[in-house]
Every structure is written in C-alpha cells, then in structure tokens.
C-alpha cells in the first residue's frame, strides 16, 4: 500500500487516474489497526486494478478534514481524483469495502 502524507496526497490520490482506495487511520484507533490487515489483503487481491493507499491522520488532520473525514476508521474510494463512495465506522468492514470496489470496477 502507498503511504500517504500531506505532501504526496494530491499526486497519489487527487491527480491519479482510475480507482484509488484511501484507508484513513491513526495510532490511537484500535478498530483501524484491526481492519488494516484485511485492507492489505484486498490490496493484494486488486493489485493492478485499484491503487490502495493509507493515511495516518495524526500528522495530517487538516488534510483528512478537507476530505470530509472526521471519524475513524474511514475508507474512501476515489475515481479519477474525485471521491465517489465511502464506508466509515461500523460499516468499515472488509466485505463492505470489497462490495464498494466491485460496484465501480
């Protein structure tokens, strides 16, 4: 998975063609850490079809808020740089993330 920071978010996500998944997480978010291995598995499964990225919001809070993310875990799906769908909190489960991808792939 591509590790996002303030400096590369625009290039890797907003200026990126095709489908991009961004996993928003933080050091203090235990549900995020529990979910991460499953997102990594999806990244492998969809390799070459969907770009998977993760953003630790602890050092990029304003960036996350600019994407209308104010709760974790949140997974956003972008297409050609535009946010098209998301799952958050209790809905942020591997099965729902996969369903979201399948809908747009």
């Amino acid at each position: 998975m591509v590790i996002l920071e303030k400096d590369n978010f625009e290039e890797e996500v907003l200026n990126s063609k095709g489908l991009v998944i961004v996993d928003f997480w933080s050091d203090g978010c235990e549900p995020c850490k529990a979910l991460m291995p499953e997102v990594e598995a999806l990244a492998e499964k969809y390799e070459g079809k969907v770009k998977f990225c993760k953003l630790n919001i602890t050092k990029a809070r304003r960036l996350a808020i600019s994407q209308r993310v104010m709760g974790l875990p949140t997974i956003l799906l972008y297409k050609d740089g535009a946010k098209i769908e998301e799952v958050t909190k209790d809905e942020a489960k591997a099965a729902n993330i996969e369903a979201m991808i399948e809908k747009h792939i």
């Binding site: 203090g28 978010c29 995020c32 104010m70 709760g71 958050t88 909190k89």
Partner: peptide, 16 residues
C-alpha cells in the same frame, strides 16, 4: 453524521 463529527470512540477520533 456518525464519522462526520459524531463519534462514540474518543481514542479513535480525538485527533480530529
């Protein structure tokens, strides 16, 4: 608005 400012998990979301 859960995950959009409403939260039940302070340790998850306090940073925001």
């Amino acid at each position: 608005l859960t995950g959009k400012g409403v939260s039940y998990c302070a340790t998850c979301d306090a940073d925001f």
